[in-house]
C-alpha cells in the first residue's frame, strides 16, 4: 500500500470534568503518516500540546489491538470511525487524505457521562454484568474440559456472542441510547451453553432490570448497533434476549 503524509484539522470535544459544559476545539496536525493508527495520530497531537504546556486530550485506550474495548471515539458521525467491524485503535490513517477535517466526540448517552474530554464512564456495563452476566461453579478440582457435550452450532453462536468487548459503540450509535445489543450478547453467550443453564431465567430478568436502572433507552430494532459493532455482534441476539426475558418473566413467581 502506498505510503503518504498528510496534514489534517481535528475538531475535538474538550471538557475539563463531568460538570464542565465543554465544547469543540480545532487543532491542526501536520506530517501524519498514512501508516499511523488513529490513536498514534492523537498521541502526536498530545505530545505537541504537552510541549506547548497545554492539557493533552484525555481518551480511553488500553490494548491497542482491538480486543479490550477501551477505546471509544465517535469519529465523523460514526462510533469507531468509518471502517466496518473495527475499533478506533485499529483504524489507520490511510482511511483519510490530506486536508481532511475529522470531528471527534465522546460516546453520548446519559448512562455514559463524560468524565473528561473523550473519556466516558462506562461502569454501567460493569454493574449490568454484576447483575447476572456470570455462571456459578462449584469449587474443587478442575472439571474435565469435555465432560459437558455442547452442540457445535450452539458453541459457535455462543462464541460469536462472547466476542463482545463491551466497548459501548452500540449505545453510542443507537438513537435511543439502548444497551440491548451488549446485554443480549452477554445473555446469549451464556444462555446457549449448558453451563449457563441454572441461572438462565434470573440472568435475563436481572440484567435487563439493571440495564433499565442505569438509564439506557428501549430498543426499537433499527440495527444501527449491529452496523457499528467492532465484533460484528448480530441483532439476532436481541431477538433471543427478548424471548429469554419474556419467557422468564411469564413463568417467574
Amino acid at each position: 500500500m502506498e505510503h503518504y503524509m498528510m496534514n489534517l484539522t481535528l475538531k475535538v470535544w474538550r471538557q475539563k470534568n463531568a460538570n464542565d459544559r465543554g465544547g469543540f476545539e480545532s487543532y491542526p496536525v501536520k506530517n501524519i503518516s498514512s501508516e499511523m493508527s488513529f490513536l498514534e495520530m492523537i498521541d502526536v497531537l498530545n505530545e505537541e500540546l504537552i510541549r506547548d504546556g497545554k492539557d493533552p486530550i484525555a481518551f480511553d485506550h488500553d490494548c491497542r489491538e482491538g480486543i479490550c474495548g477501551a477505546c471509544s471515539m465517535y469519529i465523523n458521525g460514526r462510533p469507531h470511525g468509518p471502517w466496518e467491524q473495527n475499533t478506533t485503535c485499529q483504524l489507520h490513517m490511510r482511511a483519510y487524505k490530506d486536508g481532511d477535517t475529522i470531528t471527534i466526540e465522546p460516546w453520548r448517552a446519559n448512562a455514559f457521562p463524560v468524565i473528561k474530554d473523550l473519556v466516558v464512564d462506562r461502569s454501567a456495563f460493569d454493574r449490568i454484568i454484576q447483575a447476572g452476566g456470570y455462571i456459578s461453579v462449584n469449587t474443587g478440582n478442575a472439571v474435565d474440559a469435555n465432560v459437558m457435550p455442547v452442540e457445535k452450532d450452539k458453541a459457535d453462536a455462543a462464541f460469536a456472542a462472547a466476542a463482545c468487548i463491551g466497548c459501548g459503540a452500540c449505545v453510542a450509535a443507537c438513537k435511543n441510547s439502548s444497551a440491548l445489543l451488549f446485554v443480549s450478547a452477554k445473555v446469549s453467550h451464556l444462555a446457549l451453553l449448558p453451563q449457563g443453564s441454572p441461572e438462565r431465567k434470573s440472568r435475563a430478568l436481572n440484567m435487563v432490570a439493571q440495564m433499565d436502572k442505569e438509564g439506557f433507552g428501549a430498543c426499537t430494532n433499527t440495527g444501527a448497533c449491529e452496523a457499528v459493532c467492532p465484533k460484528g455482534i448480530s441483532i439476532t441476539n436481541i431477538a433471543r434476549l427478548n424471548a429469554e426475558f419474556s419467557l422468564a418473566a411469564l413463568v417467574s413467581q
Binding site: 466526540e105 453520548r108 446519559n110 435511543n176 441510547s177 440495527g223 452496523a227
Partner: peptide, 17 residues
C-alpha cells in the same frame, strides 16, 4: 427514548447503519 441522550452529537450518524 429521546430523553436518554441529553447531549446529542455534532455530526449525526444519519443513515450510516
Amino acid at each position: 427514548n429521546r430523553s436518554k441522550r441529553k447531549q446529542g452529537y455534532a455530526v449525526p450518524m444519519g443513515n450510516k447503519g
